[in-house]
Every structure is written in C-alpha cells, then in structure tokens.
C-alpha cells in the first residue's frame, strides 16, 4: 500500500508556542547553537490501491480541509513514499 506523507507547519507569521518551549529547553540540556525551533505535524496516510493523481488531489483537499487549518497552518509538503 502506498503511503502519503503530509507535513503541516504553523504559518511563519504565527507565533509557535510549542516550538518556543522546545527552543528554551534545548540549551538547558546542553544542546547549544540552535537559533530557533518551529514544531509542526506529520501525517502518514496509507492509501488503498494506487496513489493516482486523482487520489492525491483528494488527499490535498483533505489536507487543507481537516489536517490543517489554513488560518494558522500551511501544508508544506504532500509526498508519496514507496510501499
């Protein structure tokens, strides 16, 4: 079964409190030299049958309808991984 991976990130202009929290914790653990962190989401969708262009179009719609909220997030990648 082909797997489609969708990456969702907070929009650049939106403050990312989770990323900020991670960025603040890193130097406390001795991980220096990291200027900033932004945290997003990765979805793995297993597709029944072939990942045709038609299927991908449906998934793109799902990604912008449910998997992300366009007000605060961008779908930055939607890619097919080998089965």
């Amino acid at each position: 079964m082909p797997r489609v991976v969708v990456h969702v990130m907070p929009k650049p202009e939106i403050l990312d409190p989770q990323g900020k929290a991670v960025a603040a914790a890193l130097p406390r653990l001795g991980f220096e030299g990291i200027a900033s962190v932004r945290q997003g989401k990765r979805f793995e969708l297993e597709v029944e049958g072939e990942a045709t262009e038609e299927v991908l179009a449906t998934l793109r719609e799902a990604a912008s309808t449910l998997l992300s909220n366009p007000v605060i997030e961008d779908v930055v990648a939607l890619e097919v991984e080998d089965a």
Binding site: P10, I14, P17, Q18, N69, V71, I72
Partner: peptide, 17 residues
C-alpha cells in the same frame, strides 16, 4: 465556531504556554 468558519480567525496555545 472558528474551525467551521462561522467565525473568522483561530485559537492557538497561550503565548505564555
């Protein structure tokens, strides 16, 4: 209401986390 777009905008985590 924001997620259904009956109202504009969205809510994210509190700035002080």
């Amino acid at each position: 209401l924001c997620e259904t777009h009956l109202l504009p905008g969205a809510m994210i985590k509190n700035a002080h986390r």
